[in-house]
């Protein structure tokens, strides 16, 4: 087995005096799709913010291809090859659809994703390319957010609450697009409320509870009861 592409080593995360993550250990290998599940407030979004550099940490608590990136700023992490699709889409309101996508390509890393490739994945965006991004439906906005992250050709892509607030039919189409995204060898971490959906596309799962990893393992080795216990903190 080669070295993990992303490794968390005893990650502690703080908002001021408040500690949100306690010694989280994770290893993610190249090409894996990892599901991160857990109740509200378990620390999933904090985990995403820590890896992507929005929340500063100790340098050696987050390793990317063996290099410490925990203390880097978000833009430096983006150049290194980690992209985040943030919770709630967070498109740039004063930019058009195409401008949002182009901005995602700022880091200029080489790879399979460019404007036309994103339009190929989500054809509706090509029709709407010149519209203000906020005039799109929630599902279409999520497509822009995903496309925007892909434009940087990351090695690791993080999805935070990918289906939150979207209609079931939209969620279905977004999940259908996921295999196309990771087929090129991209590593993905998916934070998801809908456990079934998350497990359907993942090979391994980590469950967070109150800032700690309460369960981890291969999807096929884990039972429903174990997840329920890890999720809510009930003794299994």
């Amino acid at each position: 087995m080669s070295d993990p592409v992303l490794q968390l080593a005893g990650l502690d995360a703080y908002y001021g005096d408040f500690q949100a993550l306690y010694g989280v250990d994770m290893e993610v290998n190249a090409g894996e799709v990892i599901a991160i599940i857990g109740a509200n407030g378990a620390g999933k979004t904090t985990l995403m913010r820590s890896i992507s550099g929005l929340l500063p940490n100790a340098a050696d608590q987050v390793l990317f291809k063996g290099q410490p990136i925990g203390a880097l700023r978000a833009d430096q992490v983006a150049y290194a090859g980690v992209a985040l699709v943030p919770e709630g889409r967070q498109l740039f309101a004063s930019l058009s659809v195409e401008e949002n996508l182009k901005l995602g390509g700022t880091v200029g890393r080489q790879g399979p994703w460019f404007l036309e490739a994103v339009y190929g994945l989500f054809p509706i965006l090509k029709e709407r390319r010149n519209q203000p991004s906020t005039s799109l439906s929630g599902g279409q906005q999520q497509m822009v957010a995903i496309g925007r992250a892909l434009m940087s050709n990351p090695e690791v892509i993080l999805f935070d609450e990918i289906s939150l607030g979207l209609a079931p039919v939209i969620i279905k189409s977004i999940y259908e697009a996921l295999p196309n995204i990771v087929s090129g060898g991209m590593t993905a971490m998916i934070v998801e409320q809908d456990v079934t959906k998350a497990l359907s596309v993942s090979s391994r799962v980590y469950c967070l509870q109150e800032g700690r990893v309460s369960l981890s393992g291969r999807v096929e080795d884990i039972t429903r009861d174990q997840i329920t216990a890890a999720y809510f903190g009930v003794a299994a």
Binding site: S52, G53, L54, R73, A74, D75, A78, Y79, A83, L84, P86, Q90, F92, A93, S94, L95, E99, K102, L103, G104, T106, V107, R148, S152
Partner: peptide, 17 residues
Amino acid sequence: RQFRAVSDNQDIAQLMG
């Protein structure tokens, strides 16, 4: 584009590099 993006949302702009 960068000016407008940073004006809209500094954190997300930072994520874009």
